[in-house]
Simulated assay, not measured.
Amino acid sequence: MTAVDVAGQGVEQDFSSRLLESSQMLSYDPMTEIDWDSPLPADQYGLNPEWSTLYGTPLWDELTEQQRITLTRHEVCSIMSTGIWFEMILQQMILRDQYVKNPANSEFQFALTEIADECRHSIMFARICQKLEVPAYFPPKLIVELARLFKSTAGGEVAYGGTLVAEEVLDVMQRDWMRGENVLDVVRTSSKIHVLEESRHMKFAREEIKEHIKGKSKLQRHFSAALIALISYGIVYSLVNPRVYKAVGIQPRRGLAVAQANEHRKSMLRNACAGLMGFLDEAGLLTPPAVALYKRVHMI
């Protein structure tokens, strides 16, 4: 091992140590931070109306106020269900990445801390969906099955790239939800918890991506860029299940068609992904084929 390698490992350990210290000082227990017994105000949304997939369309204008509230509650639970699905994938990938690594290293310890955080987040999301009495919404079957292969084989910058995409997109949404005065308190509080703790996870993922991409050939980098873009496509496409529209009497196909053509929705997604795209570009992971995939789901 060269002196440069040793120095690099030292920097990485210092970075992970700071994240560990942060997690010890700034972490929340959703079971005590959220008032699970309080009734749900009938006039509060599941998420900011501006984040609804139908907001800004004639179909949104046709809905009554109560239908809009119901729709946003189903939409937020669909997003949370997708979050649970990907957090389970993430935990498996981190465990594989840290398999038989030195447990004395702060990187190893923070990786396990992140897994513990993700477990709490998943339970938190699950309890919110239960409290809102919204059914479980899952990604399309093809994406679920392809994800089985991804979680069992992905490593390095591809694994952490997929992780970063899921975390960054949800982070931007939840920063709005936590400030939404007309949003349910359980959603606002859970968003605050998730935003705070995921900020450490995103920093960790970014550092891991930069570390893993070092020394990769142009061909390897292009291959990784395409895989990360494909994973991103699946995540963003799966955020809101078309079945949510049935809750307000809209045929899923009609709701999906309107949502996919919604220019307001496209703009919100592009804005949410701006920071992520900037990082991927700096890391050399924003290749033309990848950009084409991101454009298909309006991430760029």
Rank of each mutant, 00 (worst) to 15 (best):
residue 56 G to F: 12
residue 1 M to H: 15
residue 63 L to K: 10
residue 160 Y to H: 11
residue 149 L to I: 13
residue 256 L to Y: 12
residue 219 L to E: 14
residue 35 D to G: 03
residue 265 R to G: 12
residue 156 G to K: 04
residue 7 A to K: 15
residue 294 Y to A: 08
residue 199 S to T: 02
residue 66 Q to H: 08
residue 248 V to M: 10
residue 133 E to V: 06
residue 204 F to P: 05
residue 262 N to Y: 00
residue 46 G to W: 07
residue 69 I to P: 01
residue 292 A to S: 13
residue 245 Y to H: 07
residue 38 S to G: 07
residue 166 A to D: 02
residue 193 I to Q: 11
residue 73 R to M: 14
residue 234 G to N: 02
residue 27 S to D: 02
residue 180 G to K: 12
residue 97 D to Q: 13
residue 279 F to S: 09
residue 159 A to N: 07
residue 155 G to L: 04
residue 105 N to R: 11
residue 264 H to P: 10
residue 108 F to T: 01
residue 158 V to I: 12
residue 216 K to Y: 03
residue 23 S to V: 12
residue 78 S to K: 01
residue 219 L to N: 14
residue 179 R to Y: 09
residue 263 E to H: 12
residue 60 W to D: 05
residue 240 V to F: 07
residue 105 N to Y: 06
residue 280 L to E: 00
residue 217 S to Y: 01
residue 267 S to C: 09
residue 210 K to Q: 10
residue 287 T to V: 05
residue 109 Q to E: 00
residue 182 N to F: 03
residue 146 L to H: 00
residue 43 D to Q: 11
residue 201 H to W: 14
residue 92 Q to P: 00
residue 185 D to G: 12
residue 83 G to R: 01
residue 230 L to S: 09
residue 212 H to L: 00
residue 73 R to N: 15
residue 60 W to N: 01
residue 244 V to E: 00
residue 36 W to K: 11
residue 83 G to A: 10
residue 113 T to I: 06
residue 110 F to G: 05
residue 74 H to I: 11
residue 25 M to H: 04
residue 97 D to V: 09
residue 13 Q to S: 15
residue 34 I to M: 08
residue 47 L to T: 00
residue 165 V to G: 02
residue 108 F to W: 13
residue 267 S to T: 06
residue 181 E to G: 15
residue 154 A to N: 00
residue 5 D to H: 10
residue 37 D to M: 10
residue 275 G to D: 14
residue 224 S to H: 09
residue 147 A to H: 14
residue 23 S to G: 09
residue 125 F to L: 11
residue 143 I to T: 08
residue 166 A to T: 06
residue 268 M to L: 08
residue 19 L to E: 08
residue 119 C to R: 15
residue 234 G to Y: 08
residue 53 T to Y: 02
residue 220 Q to R: 12
residue 67 Q to V: 08
residue 231 I to L: 03
residue 84 I to A: 04
residue 176 D to A: 15
residue 131 K to C: 03
residue 299 M to F: 01
residue 267 S to A: 05
residue 243 R to A: 10
residue 293 L to C: 01
residue 245 Y to S: 05
residue 111 A to F: 14
residue 236 V to I: 14
residue 1 M to K: 15
residue 84 I to F: 05
residue 89 I to P: 02
residue 266 K to R: 15
residue 234 G to L: 02
residue 181 E to S: 15
residue 245 Y to V: 05
residue 271 N to T: 14
residue 57 T to S: 01
residue 134 V to N: 05
residue 258 V to G: 05
residue 184 L to Y: 00
residue 106 S to I: 02
residue 89 I to E: 03
residue 52 S to H: 04
residue 49 P to Q: 11
residue 143 I to V: 08
residue 204 F to R: 01
residue 154 A to D: 01
residue 158 V to F: 02
residue 142 L to R: 15
residue 101 K to T: 14
residue 46 G to L: 02
residue 276 L to N: 05
residue 282 E to V: 01
residue 150 F to V: 10
residue 98 Q to E: 07
residue 143 I to F: 13
residue 135 P to R: 15
residue 246 K to M: 06
